[in-house]
Amino acid sequence: MIEVPPPALDLELRLIRYFIAVAEHGQFSRAAAALHIGQPSLSRQIRGLEHQLGVRLLERTPRGTRLSEAGEAFLPKAKALLRAADEAAAGGGAAGAPGPGGCKPKPAPQKKKQNSNKIKKEPTRQK
């Protein structure tokens, strides 16, 4: 029987940024304001990340939020992941290198020159 490896984790960098913001601000409301998103949405996103990882990253208290033991372990890895992603994106900016998503950027559209020799039509007047 062939063993099938478990599916790889498909983490979104956006969720990693959200987690780091909450960890650094210590409150969902402050992190949400800094990220320019709603607090309920941020809370749902973090719960989804915790569900995806299978661990509780944050302990919610009436006074704010603090990192759980798993959150303490995950935070430096999350920061390293974002740094690596930023470095990879910056390295992709070289001439001819693929951009984000492995695609070369499209060249900017050029304006078409209008032929000034054309006769301009004047609007017709209605009687």
Rank of each mutant, 00 (worst) to 15 (best):
R44A: 15
L58S: 03
R56D: 04
G93Q: 05
K77P: 01
G64P: 00
E59P: 00
C103I: 15
K121Q: 12
A32F: 11
P40F: 02
G101T: 12
L15K: 13
A97K: 05
A88M: 15
A85Q: 12
E87P: 01
M1A: 08
N117I: 14
L57D: 04
G92T: 05
A78M: 06
A78H: 02
E72M: 05
V22Q: 13
F19W: 11
N117F: 13
A94Y: 07
A70M: 08
P107G: 09
G92V: 08
P98C: 06
T124W: 10
G64M: 02
I16D: 11
V22L: 05
P5Q: 14
L82G: 12
L15S: 12
A78Q: 00
C103W: 14
G99C: 11
P107R: 03
K120D: 10
M1W: 02
E24Y: 15
K112N: 07
Q52S: 03
A21C: 00
K118H: 15
A90F: 14
N115T: 13
E87Y: 01
A78I: 04
R44H: 12
C103N: 11
V22P: 08
P40C: 09
P100C: 01
E12S: 05
Q126E: 02
C103G: 03
T124D: 07
I119N: 06
R63F: 14
S41M: 10
S43V: 04
A85M: 12
F28T: 06
A21D: 12
Y18S: 11
D10P: 03
P40K: 02
G54F: 09
K121E: 15
R44V: 06
E59I: 01
P109E: 13
E59H: 00
H36E: 14
L82Y: 09
G64A: 08
A78D: 11
H36Q: 07
F28D: 13
S43R: 04
R66L: 10
A34P: 08
P105Y: 09
I20K: 08
S68T: 08
A90G: 05
G102S: 12
H51L: 09
K104R: 07
R60V: 06
T61G: 00
G99S: 15
Q39G: 09
S29W: 07
P5F: 10
E69N: 07
P7Y: 03
A21M: 04
E3V: 00
L42Y: 04
L53C: 02
Q45M: 12
K104Y: 13
S29P: 10
G91T: 11
L11F: 05
D10N: 15
G93M: 11
A31V: 08
K77C: 06
P107Y: 14
S116V: 13
F19Q: 01
P62R: 03
L75G: 02
R83Y: 05
G48V: 02
E3C: 00
L13F: 03
P109W: 15
R47N: 00
L35Y: 00
L13V: 03
K120R: 15
G101E: 09
N115E: 14
F28L: 05
H25S: 12
P123I: 10
G93I: 05
R14P: 01
Q39P: 06
